[in-house]
Write a protein that binds this DNA or RNA. Structure first.
Length: 283
DNA sequence: CACCATGTTCCTTG
DNA sequence: CCAAGGAACATGGT
């Protein structure tokens, strides 16, 4: 499911349902998903605690709970990796095969399911300290962005995936933002002119904001069954037409560029696919 | 069998 | 110390 917009949409959903719920017990099926927290530590700290708030930083989710004794705040860091999902499900619902953690909340279960187990749910919050600015907040200024980019000769596409430069952009929206800014993914980060950097910053914000809006219109299925196929590539029933081809280049190799008709190309950078229009993205 | 997949971290090399 | 590249983690779809 997961780049910044998908996580943001999920956080907004959970915010409506999770606060107030008390953890009766915790079932840890995959202790590695808690790293570096141990299963024992995890259960001890969370059993009896009440969810109070949920926030997001980059692709990370931060759950706040009040401990059973009432005094202290417990923070939980969640990351969905490539295939992670979190959802509330009725007790009678079948627990998915790759459920890493299941919280018993009384009437419902709160499930962290993660097929590939790249995700994480941990008491260790230190990962967020390494993150760069939130792209949709005010401190993601063109100047701060430029300062980061000037220090690197890496290809700009690869640099956009560096979470210490800007937090939350992933492989899909990196290609999409570069397309909108008309910048070649192969361009060295430190070769970009200030004007192009400004345009790229704007494109990142635009792409992420539109994705959040789109995700908010989609009926996400929190019973767990396929909630993301629709989110990424499809369109909600009755959603506006302009969302139909929401992604303009990602996963569209060989298809015509929506601007000029040139076939979209796929290249590999840092072992990940990049999609771009060789005609529109020349800078 | 091959190759592909929304992510991060660790190790090596320079 | 650093930047940069590649492997590793793990499972499933085509």
């Amino acid at each position: 499911m997961p780049e910044l917009p998908e996580v943001e949409v999920l956080v907004r959903h959970l915010r409506r349902t999770l606060p107030g719920k008390i953890v009766r017990s915790v079932q840890v099926n995959r202790a590695k998903s808690l790293r570096p927290t141990s299963g024992r530590q995890f259960r001890l700290r969370l059993t009896g605690a009440r969810f109070t708030a949920i926030s997001r930083r980059g692709k990370y989710m931060i759950f706040e709970l009040r401990s059973r004794s009432g005094g202290e705040t417990v923070r939980l860091l969640g990351h969905l990796g490539m295939t992670g999902r979190m959802f509330l499900a009725l007790k009678k619902a079948r627990i998915p095969k790759h459920a890493a953690v299941v919280f018993d909340l009384g009437r419902t279960n709160f499930v962290f399911e993660d097929t590939r187990y790249f995700g994480r749910l941990s008491l260790d919050l230190s990962a967020v300290e390494k993150l760069g600015p939130e792209p949709l907040e005010d401190d993601f200024t063109p100047e701060a962005f430029a300062k980061e980019l000037k220090r690197s000769r890496q290809a700009i596409k690869v640099k956009l995936l560096d979470q210490s430069v800007v937090a939350g952009v992933g492989n899909i929206y990196a290609s999409e933002a570069l397309f909108r800014a008309r910048i070649s993914p192969k361009k060295a980060a430190n070769q970009l002119k200030q004007q192009r950097i400004k345009a790229l910053r704007g494109a990142i914000r635009e792409v992420l904001t539109e994705a959040i809006e789109f995700g908010s219109t989609v009926p996400v299925n929190f019973d767990g069954a396929k909630s993301d196929g629709l989110f990424y590539f499809g369109r909600a029933p009755g959603a506006p037409d302009y969302y139909e081809e929401r992604l303009r280049v990602y996963d569209r190799a060989g298809k015509p560029c929506p601007e000029c008709g040139t076939p979209i190309r796929r290249i590999v950078q840092a072992a990940r696919s990049t999609f771009f229009c060789p005609t529109c993205q020349k800078v």
